[in-house]
Structures are given as structure tokens and as C-alpha cells.
Amino acid sequence: MNNLYNFLTGPALWFSFAVFLVGLLVRLVFLFGLSRERDRVFYNHIDWRWAFRSIWHWLIPWGSASMRLQPFFSLVFFVFHVGLLAVPLFLSAHNMLWDEAFGLSLWSMPDVIADILTVLVILCAIFLFVRRLARAEVRILSGIWDYCIILISAAPFVTGFLAYHQLLDYDLMMVLHVITGELLLILIPFTKLGHMMLFFFTRSFIGFEMGTRRGARSW
């Protein structure tokens, strides 16, 4: 188990980060090349103020008319994303690993906060899963993969939580935690999760299209 853990936090981790970063970069460069040729409309109406507003209003809770139509879902959706990004980046245990490897680390949040956020992410994931099943207009759009993505996104949080509180088998949980975390990183560039990067581009486009060209707010 120890060897496996060392492999997972060693070469496998490097591999995952490499796939994640290079994958996103390749996707971006590919789309950029394509857009220069086929999406002139993107470049013809650039106005960064509209791009910024278009992005900002969809980053803050209830910042758009659409989110205000489904306020509870929007809150869940917001908390889910905050947890999804903040916990892995600012968890003190993760930062210790960074520190060990490079002597550098990010700011760490108190463990209590990380714990609360983790529970919230899990609860949000359950809500999103149930919502996907329960609401007809969401269910009709959903394939198996859409449900899997929710499970895969929540898995590192469930296993991390169990490991931190030493519930069930600690070693096993740590292994599962690292595996699911790495799986998530690897999947991001190749799935709809790529929206963590592409969101900023699609929102900029609609900001230009509705805002720069028409003065209409796309939020």
C-alpha cells in the first residue's frame, strides 16, 4: 500500500498535472487557431469591459437574472464551485506537500473551514445529482456521463473527508483520494469540465455579441 501511495503521489501526480495543464493548453491553442480562421466575429467586436461584466455577473451569487430565477440552485452551484476550487488549493495538508516538494506553498485555510467546505461540496453534489434526476428539463438532457461527472467531482472530497477523520481504512482512503483526485485532473481537459477555462471565453464572446454590439446585458 505504501509503495502504491508513493507512486500515486510521485510519478502519477506529475503525470496528472502534466495532462491537466498540457491538455488545457493544447485545447486552448487548437481552439485559438480554429477561431482565427472561422470565428472572425469573436475578434471584430472586442471590448474587454463587456467581457469582464459578462464574466463577473456570472461569478457572483445571483449576479444574473437567470440565477435569480432559481435562487436556491444558484446558491448550491456557487458554493459547490467555491469548495471545488478552494479546498484543493488552500488545504493545509496539500500546502505541506507543496512545501516539501518546492519549499513554496499557498496560503492555507484553517482545517475547520476546509472541513465545512468539504461537507458542503458533498451536500451540493448530492443536490446536483438529485436535481438532475428530479427536474424533467435537466433529466432529458442528462446522459450517464453527466451523472458520472458529478460523482467523480465529489469523490476526492468524500475520500478526503473520510481519510482526514480516519473513518474506515485510512490507507485505503488516502489511495482512493489521490486516485480520484488525479482522475478528475486528467478528465478536465477532455470533458465538459474544460469549462473551468473555456467559461471565460464563451462569456467574453456573448459579452461582445450582446454588449459591445447591442448594449444588452447577457446576465
Partner: peptide
């Protein structure tokens, strides 16, 4: 093929299937 640009590719691949558009 002619329409397979960055925009349409991105839209088709990142739609999160959240259903928020329905009520609009």
C-alpha cells in the same frame, strides 16, 4: 465542417446540461 469553429465546438462540448435555459 465550415461551421466547425472554436465557438460551436466549445458550445457543444461544454454545455453543462444544467437546464437553466429552459425557463428563458
Amino acid at each position: 465542417d465550415a461551421n466547425n469553429g472554436a465557438r460551436i465546438r466549445t458550445w457543444l462540448s461544454i454545455c453543462a446540461r444544467c437546464g437553466l435555459c429552459a425557463e428563458s
